[in-house]
């Protein structure tokens, strides 16, 4: 999962990233690109991200995205 997301984001912004890298707070990706990333996650992992979950803690790194998704998929 982590690998897949990392690959997608790297392609989307045309820049290599790693799973721990801060994406939003560093300005590496903007809030619009992250929307596309969320849309990708929703489609790929068949989850629905409710608007109130769209906060920086859940999406700042690929790792945090993975954690969030696991939480969603288990619940």
């Amino acid at each position: 999962m982590i690998e897949e997301i990392t690959k997608y984001i790297s392609e989307e912004i045309d820049t290599d990233i790693n799973a721990e890298e801060e994406l939003l707070s560093s300005g590496l990706i903007d809030s619009i690109t992250i929307m596309k990333v969320i849309a990708f996650l929703e489609e790929t992992y068949d989850v629905k991200v409710p608007p109130q979950d769209m906060v920086i803690e859940n999406f700042n790194t690929v790792q945090s995205m993975g954690d969030y998704l696991k939480g969603q998929l288990q619940s």
Binding site: L24, S31, I34, P51, Q52, M54, V55, I56, F59
Partner: peptide, 10 residues
Amino acid sequence: DSYRSLNPDL
């Protein structure tokens, strides 16, 4: 909490 999102600008 009710309003915040991915970043303040958004």
